[in-house]
């Protein structure tokens, strides 16, 4: 009995030491972690508000937020639950808050943060949509958290060559429901598919199998996120 008590006491003491150490490091790193996350978000917002074809900003340079305060001034919709919209069918979620900017030509540009479920959990994507006469037009995306995806496979999701495949998707593509090419029965890819990427996008097909060999779950998570974002915009940005 005494032996067991001694063991329990030793383990308890060890756990207390560990808890104190972890708590101290957590407090020490809380601010740098918040700063890193904010910087990643700010950099992503600037990136998605840049026209991928011309490399020019859609909004005025002075309108790009560089601090939390400036970012908060651009909040369009928010919800205390942390989630603005969810589509349980496709497992796509839009996180709170959503931001609104005005483009140089006076159109509304919405920047949304959302996630889908990837291989190891949340894959968080930032995307910008511009409201045009015929509906919403997705400009660009940036994946800001893919830390639970497999290095070398799903973790390539934020590489430019992969990200580009999600750029400039017209509303006709979203109306059909975005799919990765493997889910749209477009696999294996036929000769000359590269020249048809934009035509596939207008049909809602995002070709990723050639730039992300072996990884389908992660791009599917991004596609689910974009579908949820589009549904949210259709509902809320009338």
């Amino acid at each position: 009995m005494l032996k067991h008590l001694k063991m329990a006491l030793i383990l308890t003491m060890l756990m207390i030491v560990i808890a104190v150490a972890l708590d101290s490091v957590y407090i020490l790193t809380k601010k740098p972690i918040a700063k890193s996350d904010l910087n990643a978000k700010l950099s992503a917002i600037k990136s998605v508000l840049t026209d991928p074809n011309t490399g020019k900003l859609l909004i005025k340079e002075s309108e790009i937020p560089t601090s939390l305060k400036q970012l908060d001034s651009k909040v369009w919709k928010s919800d205390s639950s942390g989630v603005l919209y969810k589509d349980d069918k496709v497992k796509g979620y839009v996180l709170s808050p959503a931001y609104k900017f005005t483009t140089k030509d006076g159109k509304n540009a919405y920047v949304l943060v959302g996630y889908g479920i990837g291989f190891g959990g949340r894959v968080i994507t930032v995307a910008a949509f511009v409201r045009k006469d015929d509906g919403f037009y997705e400009n660009a995306i940036r994946v800001i958290d893919y830390s639970n995806e497999t290095p070398g496979l799903g973790a390539q999701i934020n590489d430019l060559k992969v990200r580009k495949r999600f750029y400039s998707i017209p509303n006709s593509g979203f109306e059909s429901g975005l799919k990765v090419n493997k889910d749209a029965n477009l696999y294996p890819l036929k000769n000359g598919y590269l020249s048809k990427l934009n035509s596939y996008k207008s049909k809602g097909i995002v070709v990723t199998s050639d730039v992300m060999t072996g990884a389908t779950i992660t791009p599917r998570a991004v596609v689910s996120t974009l579908n949820a974002m589009y549904a949210f915009l259709k509902k809320e940005a009338k």
């Binding site: 601010k31 740098p32 972690i33 996350d37 190891g120 800001i144 830390s147 995806e149 973790a155």
Partner: peptide, 16 residues
């Protein structure tokens, strides 16, 4: 925690 705070890109790349 340290990598998340100070080497964000590497932390994201190595992830899981």
């Amino acid at each position: 925690l340290l990598m998340h705070g100070y080497t964000y890109q590497l932390w994201t790349n190595l992830g899981l």
